[in-house]
Design a protein around this nucleic acid. Structure first.
Lengths: 244, 244
DNA sequence: CTCCCAGGTGTACGCCGTACACCAATGGTG
DNA sequence: CACCATTGGTGTACGGCGTACACCTGGGAG
């Protein structure tokens, strides 16, 4: 059995095995404590051995991204674009929940991986199949990817923060320190209201899934309206409007 | 004058001077080539000197974030929430354009800085002042921060990518390699259409500002509709809807 | 004049990614 | 069968990183 363990330990390395190990390691300990040395040790191998299968750490990260993006359920074939898109987006979100490091990793790469491109492409395909013009499909994709505030709202979301750096302790519930409540009264008001109707005193205090679907449906409804009312004209705005 | 240079070189360090130098360094060479050693050299000082003014690199980054977030124009006082929000968001976007590293830096910190909180708080304040219920204001803030696709759309945006790692060469215009066009036909279709009506063969091929305002207005219009039609009910959806 | 101490310095440690030379097995070919 | 090229794991080493810690130093307070 020592022999078996031996055999097990030296199961030949492969790009795929490395990527999968890297993903589970990042899931477990956070991506910023994922090092080549770490990963090699996990695989019972010397660090430099990895370089026979991945060119460098950036390529490793790209590979990891494609592994997890590949886990997004494919679009269910259906004649109605709206539920199709909705389900797919929620599937993507579930994936990001399973791999909390992934969202940041994807955004910080400076070039899209094939997997990400495939995901986006199939999403465009759904819109096109539903009769969206190329232009409208284009705008819609941008709209669904935009971060309007410039950064996203996970400020009070514990679970997601956890994945940043080690999913260790559950972090003692920020709970909005009282002096912050004085400086940021409106945020405090919101936080209090949310934690009330959530029932729990501790915890992030707002139902992130609910908020996500709220935003998603807001966008989908707006998109539907645009699509029905003829086509491409961007929504009216009382300002001069986009340059171009 | 050697004396003057001497005096200039030893202008006393200060937290503020360090932060400003760090911001301009990150603006110039990208944030991932910003090191304590680098920054110290820029300031004509030994690396460890910085630690007399900032606790560590994370605190330095937090400080940098607050410097640039502080550059966002304050909300113009006005009775109408919609143009107020619109202007403010566009101001934030201009800031992010000036400091391409900032968006990622803000998202990757695992705790919000005071400056970011202040920005968000004042945004909530605008909605509340316009008569939005606490709940609706809450949902709206989430909606404006959400990334529906899980990651944002800057995949084809050169300028922003540049800030990631050194704003060096303009990068020879990806131009959608032909074999990728075969694998991602819908993306290719969009890219082609965009680069056509943009007139230029090279370049990112789509007017990012236009796309941003498109998404922004789509959301603002949806929000306005919600606000007018009574209040908090989340948009209808043909699915079971959020749990809670 | 003396003392203190804020603030700049020098050295050192343990991490990181990875270049490069090496070596062991393996399998195709004469 | 002998041979050798190829594949893939190993060992060592380098330069860069953040930063702990001991040290110095100059200027103001007593």
């Amino acid at each position: 059995m020592a022999e078996q363990a031996d055999v097990l330990r030296r199961t030949p390395l492969s790009r795929d095995r490395i990527l999968r190990a890297a993903v589970t390691l990042a899931d477990g300990t956070g991506i910023e404590s994922l090092s080549m040395r770490n990963l090699a040790q996990e695989l019972g191998v010397v660090p430099m051995a990895l370089y026979k299968h991945v060119a460098n750490k950036d390529e490793l990260l790209d590979g990891m991204i494609d592994v997890v993006v590949g886990q997004i359920d494919p679009p269910v074939p259906g004649d109605d674009w709206k539920p199709t898109v909705r389900l797919r987006v929620l599937a993507a979100r579930r994936m990001l929940g399973r791999h909390p490091w992934a969202a940041l990793a994807i955004e910080s790469r400076n070039t899209a991986t094939p997997g990400v491109l495939a995901y986006l492409d199939s999403m465009v395909g759904v819109f096109r199949a539903a009769g969206f013009s190329v232009d409208l499909a284009h705008h819609v994709m941008h709209a669904m990817g935009s971060r309007i505030l410039g950064f996203s709202q996970e400020l009070f979301d514990d679970t997601r923060r956890a994945g940043r750096s080690g999913a260790s302790e559950p972090q003692p519930a920020p709970t909005f320190p009282p002096e912050a409540a004085a400086r940021f009264p409106h945020l405090a008001e919101i936080a209090v209201a949310a934690s009330h109707d959530d029932g729990s005193v501790v915890g992030s205090g707002c139902d992130d899934q609910f908020e996500f679907e709220f935003a998603l449906d807001l966008l989908l409804d707006g998109i539907e309206r645009l699509h029905r009312q003829g086509c491409t004209p961007p929504p009216f705005s009382e300002f001069s409007g986009p340059r171009r």
